[in-house]
Amino acid sequence: MYAQNGTPFMADEDLLNTVLADLKRTVREYTTAATESNCPTVRRVFNDLTMDTLRLQGELYNQMSQMNMYTAPGKALRQDVDKQIQAAQQTQQKCQQFVREKTGGAGAYNQASNVPLHQANVQHNNGSYYM
């Protein structure tokens, strides 16, 4: 596939980027297909195809990265990460409060958390419950 002037149709980098973009789209479509499948056999095949296409996309990304064909996105700033952590903790606290209110504390957040306990959890047994 060469143009009339003898140069390649497109650079390797551009061609592989096109494939990478299509792999990403295909993973999304397999995921959607799996979630909307009725037949268990069909769902399992779409699930397997999702996982395998995800693997292929990851492998291609790594290979392109090693050949300097893909520029990794810039790093997020510490202040932005801090801001998101603060917002996430507030979301967690409000979510836990909501669950406590709705369930009366029964079985709420019994699973071990992988983040340190914070104020909301410490107060868990002292709070007043509604419902």
Binding site: E36, N38, C39
Partner: peptide
């Protein structure tokens, strides 16, 4: 486990 395909499944 096999069932007839739905129209949606066939399209996917």
């Amino acid at each position: 486990q096999m069932q007839a395909l739905s129209g949606k499944e066939l399209e996917y």
